[in-house]
Simulated scan of single mutants.
Amino acid sequence: MLSPSSAGKAEKLGYVNVKVFRDGMPAWKKAGNLVVSTSQYVKENMDKDIPQVIIDLRPPDDAQKGHIKGAVSIPSKEISTAKDRFPADKKAPIVLYADDAKTAVDAFKVVRGWGYTNTSVLEGGIETWKKAGNPVVSDKLKTTIVYVPKPRPGEIGVEDFKKIAETLPADKLILDVRDEDEAMQGMLKGAKNIPAQDIKSRLSEIPKDKELIAHCLTGVRAEMAFHTLKEAGYKVRFLNANIKIDKDGKYEISKE
């Protein structure tokens, strides 16, 4: 899903001319570069009822024949004038898909330009979605975006997180689920780094006798890690907030 590997995927798919960003995904996204979401990531969000906005950019007649469940129809030719139809929350996860890469990328540039920082393009579009065995529906297409963030199961309060980060209780472990290059820029004292996408394959490295407190940069990957660990039988919570950590471990947290 959303990781520095998105840059590599974008390059392989011919979406953009990729440059190396040593600060990882935060710098990549801040620069407005293309972000790619996999079908697996989008489907996992659907299965876990995590709110996301899915936009079908194809002509309505084509989209009606088979679209991703819950997708909203905004044809690509209308996207540049559709700003008022998008959520007020600029952090809303927005996934765009079409039949071809250029259409999706052009729409991405428009929506990202409006300040929606968690905008992405569905890797491979609707065809890759179907080839992965994911369902499409032909029910009535939605034309209105409804985005209502839900209370997150397992979310830890900011003050509780700070207390744990500062006191490091013996029965708790802060799990940093950012990618390795991000963690190299600075980690919280006592934290353990295992990237979110590696959690399933590295469960043997994670103690079951401690409560895990997962964090990433914005809470998106931490929430995915929460679900993975919960399903594996771990006691876990996650930080649903922005956190910035410097080289000496000092940090700032914000909910904006």
Rank of each mutant, 00 (worst) to 15 (best):
P59T: 01
A132T: 05
D89T: 00
R85Y: 01
S201A: 15
K230W: 06
C216S: 12
L212V: 11
D181P: 03
R152V: 06
D209N: 14
A225D: 06
E182M: 05
D100G: 11
L141W: 02
P59S: 07
E44M: 06
D246N: 12
V121I: 15
E205T: 08
L168V: 08
T81K: 14
E252F: 07
T144I: 05
L57G: 00
Y116V: 01
A214V: 10
T218L: 13
F161A: 07
P153A: 07
N118Y: 03
L34E: 01
T128W: 13
P169E: 08
D160C: 05
E223I: 06
N45V: 02
K255N: 10
E123N: 05
A170D: 11
R152I: 07
P153E: 06
I54Q: 03
L141Y: 02
K77T: 14
V146W: 01
K9P: 00
K192H: 13
P75D: 12
G190P: 15
F108P: 02
G14Y: 13
A71I: 10
G219Q: 11
I55A: 05
S73G: 14
K65G: 01
A98Y: 02
P51G: 11
F108C: 01
D198W: 14
F226H: 06
K131P: 01
K9W: 13
V137P: 00
G219S: 07
V136Y: 02
D61T: 04
P135Y: 07
A104Q: 00
Y41R: 05
K65T: 00
D176A: 08
A27T: 07
G70P: 02
Q52F: 12
I174H: 05
L217M: 15
V121A: 06
A191K: 08
